[in-house]
């Protein structure tokens, strides 16, 4: 089987910070652009990703990062700069009338999740699926392919492809690998991430 080539470089070995793995840091401000408001302050202890990978398991904790607010502000400023430079990531940029009242099947498709998924093949994702009516399961890996009723996730460490039902997909987290590298670099500069 052809091995999918991607630009994602595995992060440095996971480190803990205040007892929480680095992977649980809150990346939401780097992925989703936030509107700039003067004087806006971010709480020093943002809720972490929590990492609920399997339903039924207790969440890995929603406690925030306990960092000095000064260093967090510096990181948040740099995060905003990253956001400004690439804030079109994951935006559909479709006219509102196409979203609200599509006039063709193609317009309906372009405003759908399938189209968005197909556009971002190659991204590192965490996809959460509904199994039955109440339980969920998450698969993470590289979004390898998107079809009419399936999506394929490639897991590099295990060298396997997981073909999943697209209609069971509930939500999907995208990780822009370029920003992830930038964020890791910023954290390293601020002494919050150690590389061995």
């Amino acid at each position: 089987m052809v091995h999918f080539q991607n630009t994602y470089t595995p992060a440095a070995p996971r480190q803990t910070m205040n007892g929480r793995p680095i992977s649980q840091m809150d990346w939401s401000s780097e992925i989703t652009p936030e509107p700039e408001t003067q004087g806006q302050t971010h709480p020093a202890s943002d809720t972490g990703m929590g990492g609920m990978r399997m339903s039924g398991e207790n969440g890995m904790g929603s406690g925030g990062m306990t960092q000095p607010s000064g260093s967090m502000e510096g990181i948040q400023d740099q995060g905003r700069q990253i956001i400004q430079s690439g804030d079109q990531y994951l935006r559909s940029n479709l006219p509102m009338e196409v979203i609200e009242a599509p006039l063709t099947a193609d317009e309906a498709y372009r405003g759908s999740m399938k189209a968005k998924l197909a556009k971002y093949v190659g991204s590192y994702v965490v996809a959460t699926f509904l199994v039955g009516t109440q339980s969920t399961v998450s698969w993470e890996g590289i979004l390898y392919d998107v079809g009419n009723d399936f999506l394929t996730i490639y897991q590099e460490p295990r060298d396997r492809y997981i073909v999943t039902d697209i209609y069971s997909l509930k939500y999907i987290e995208f990780y822009d690998t370029r920003r992830r590298e930038m964020c890791e670099a910023i954290l390293r500069e601020n002494g919050l991430q150690n590389n061995n």
């Binding site: 509904l130 009516t133 109440q134 009723d149 399936f150 039902d165 209609y167 069971s168 509930k170």
Partner: peptide, 14 residues
């Protein structure tokens, strides 16, 4: 009914 309301679909007729 619960299955469909939750968002599940048969792929062929989704």
């Amino acid at each position: 009914a619960d299955w469909a309301i939750a968002g599940n679909r048969l792929p062929d007729v989704a």
